[in-house]
Nucleic acid binder design. Structure first.
Lengths: 202, 202
DNA sequence: AGCTTAAAATACTGATGGGTATTTATTTAT
DNA sequence: ATAAATAAATACCCATCAGTATTTTAAGCT
């Protein structure tokens, strides 16, 4: 909430930057998996003491929740926008393709998707991180579903396949594409695969 | 190789069953992930001492290799058969669907796919387990590719999409379906999603 | 200056991890 | 009987983990 907002009346001034720690945590969990990095290691990388982390985030679960939410708002917001912007269906599909083909390596960011990774390693996570991941997944599936519903009602999606089914399918295609990216599949190959996946709609 | 084949001339007779330990290991890694269960825990579950495991499998990496290979031959062989049986394309697609829709829970087995899980947690694995997972993945992609090539040459697959692209796509659909199963998605919903995925070929 | 407040850093705890040294038990060969 | 061989079981080693108690440092307040 406040990284700098209200300075307390007295006491030793805070030197640890919550945002800096979060950035390190997001990139670490993103690159190495939510269970692949320890708090000790994150402390080392962020140049911060362990009690500092615990004062700021409570416990490991709290850090993971904060990292996941930071990831969601920073890197997954564009996806939500595409689905709620009410674009013509074909245009939205193109935007989806662009989103998926974003070359993270070019921006110095890991491949893959932290949200997907958290969902997958659900049972090695704390309660709150699990809940946060589940909730976001639900919201995304719902947004996909509503988007398909709208496309149907606008006559841009001619099919009697249940919207929920289509939502699950598209969600899976996005996750798969990001997985392929992580595996090092070339961008043009990735594009062919994803466009093949979307070709079910034409 | 030999669980009982050659009995050594002398020494205390072996009581530990390699197959029993492997069965426990496969199910444990399958259900909880290749990094989600420790050797200590597998010892407990198998009712076997730790040095016993190390005598039999060398180290953790060796146990994972053995478990993965047991999984591959036991549960993934049918997939390979479908691809090499030279069935008519439509029939092979149906067999693929049946394979994916196998209800593991009904057989008391975990959902998801250990092979896929191993590939995904590659960088938390030992060298040999990683190599074994990679190799099997390559073989599967190659089998898929050849299968598509054959369908093309038989005129049952009319498209100019590269076979490698199609192979990556189908591989992703199988993995996605197993992931959905693990998430508890209903069988009929799963079937709709998978058939939607395969509808790109008709 | 001295007191209070709060964060930083160090050092610790107990549990668990992978892996192993050592001892004990059970067999065959002499 | 005893020695050799081999597996089983116990007990251990050291690293690392999540989490915490304790002390030190740096500020404001009086």
């Amino acid at each position: 909430m406040n990284t700098k907002g209200n300075k307390p009346a007295r006491g030793r001034p805070k030197t640890m930057s919550r945002d800096h720690v979060l950035k390190i945590a997001v990139e670490s969990y993103w690159a190495e998996g939510p269970t692949g990095v320890s708090i000790n290691e994150i402390c080392r990388r962020a140049g911060v003491s362990k009690p500092g982390i615990y004062r700021e985030f409570g416990n490991e679960d709290g850090l993971k929740v904060a990292a996941l939410q930071a990831y969601q708002t920073t890197f997954l917001a564009p996806l939500g926008d595409i689905l709620t912007d009410d674009l013509p269906f074909g245009q939205a599909l193109q935007a989806l393709t662009d989103f998926v083909l974003l070359d993270h390596k070019a921006h110095g960011l890991p491949d893959g998707c932290l949200q997907v990774a958290m969902c997958r390693s659900k049972d090695e996570l704390g309660m709150h991180a699990r809940q946060s991941a589940d909730k976001f997944r639900e919201q995304t599936l719902f947004a996909l579903e509503q988007w398909i519903e709208r496309a149907k009602s606008k006559g841009q999606f001619a099919s009697n396949i249940p919207s929920r089914t289509v939502a699950l399918y598209i969600d899976a295609q996005i996750a798969s594409a990001m997985e392929l990216q992580k595996q090092g599949v070339a961008q043009d190959e990735l594009e062919r695969v994803f466009k093949l996946a979307l070709s079910v709609f034409s």
